[in-house]
């Protein structure tokens, strides 16, 4: 059996093992590979930089743990960036299988623990920021489209209380946000279709500026919305997350320290992604070459 035949008959578990090793080694010995920033990501950074201190942004956690490695770093970066710019942040969750937990975890990673009963405490990481005044967590709401539509008319009907059960009217920031008109833009961290709804419902019908941080699987479709101007920015998968994290870390070294303290961040993931992706690409090329050679041999009757 020659080499080509061996390649064609290679047990796929050897490839799994190789991919596994390629995932482990860069974690143990980080490569710190360079990150090139693309236009859709730069647009988000520029928009956040252009806002006046005190303006409000809404971050919607529309994903669950299954896509956490892609969406978590986006959530961390946008919240940290906004707070560093003295913007105010409203966090919501619309994804049923884990959105509410992801939102709370990422918010707590960025600002420090938020303990019940009412979460009305100063942030550990940003001592001048207070829950309810500078950032707030409205919690999760079921219904997706219906909730998004109603939020335009009356935010408090959709979210009568925050995540901890305290009526929104008891918080300065809660009172101020009555609908989409009160936020500068909505950032949806999305898996699947919910990010699309922000563009084709909220942006199209209410004119609210929308940015989306989507999973890589959904990215090709989201680029059409970005191109058509229905989203002003797009973070596509782990690559988009790594680019945005890089921009934020370059401009705000104090935030880079926070991000580096996380067990998982996009920069770390991107190192591994690059190595694994290169190996997979190499094997796709080898597989195709082996297939073409084998087909030619068969044609020649060898």
């Amino acid at each position: 059996m020659d080499m080509m035949e061996r390649l064609m008959n290679l047990d796929r578990r050897w490839l799994y093992l190789l991919v596994g090793l390629a995932a482990v080694i860069p974690i143990l010995a980080p490569l710190n590979l360079p990150v090139n920033v693309s236009r859709p990501v730069q647009d988000l950074f520029d928009r956040v930089e252009s806002l006046e201190p005190g303006e409000i942004i809404m971050v919607s956690f529309d994903y669950g743990p299954s896509t956490g490695p892609e969406n978590d770093p986006m959530g961390d970066a946008i919240i940290l960036h906004a707070l560093a710019r003295d913007l105010r942040v409203v966090v919501i969750a619309l994804y049923p299988l884990g959105g509410v937990t992801e939102a709370r975890e990422e918010l707590e990673r960025c600002v420090g623990d938020l303990d019940p009963p009412n979460g009305q405490i100063a942030s550990e990481r940003f001592p001048d920021k207070v829950y309810g005044r500078d950032f707030i967590y409205f919690g999760y709401k079921d219904g997706g489209l219906a909730a998004m539509r109603l939020m335009s008319d009356n935010m408090h009907e959709v979210f009568p209380a925050d995540f901890y059960g305290t009526p929104l009217d008891e918080y300065e920031l809660g009172r101020e946000v009555q609908g989409y008109d009160n936020v500068a833009f909505v950032m949806s961290l999305a898996t699947g279709i919910i990010g699309e709804w922000w563009a084709n419902l909220v942006n199209a019908q209410f004119g609210t500026p929308v940015a989306v941080g989507c999973t890589a699987v959904s990215a090709p479709k989201y680029f059409a919305y970005y191109r058509a101007g229905q989203m002003f920015a797009l973070l596509a998968g782990l690559k988009g997350a790594a680019e945005y994290e890089f921009l934020v870390s370059q401009k705000y070294p104090q935030l880079a320290q926070i991000t580096d303290s996380f067990i998982y961040n996009a920069g770390k993931g991107w190192d591994v992604q690059s190595v694994v992706y290169s190996i997979i690409t190499l094997f796709i090329i080898i597989g195709n070459v082996a297939f073409i050679v084998e087909r030619r041999r068969q044609k020649r009757g060898m």
Binding site: V19, G20, A23, V24, I27, L28, S66, T67, G68, P69, E70, T215, A216, V217, A219, P220, A236, G237, L238, K239, I263, Y264, K268, G269, V272, Q273, V276, Y277, I280
Partner: peptide, 25 residues
Amino acid sequence: GAAFGYTIMGRISILIGRVIFLINQ
């Protein structure tokens, strides 16, 4: 092809998240 490439990227990201969890945490 582009969609497939992005799909691989997404799936590898999930693997990365798990591997980092196992090794570091």
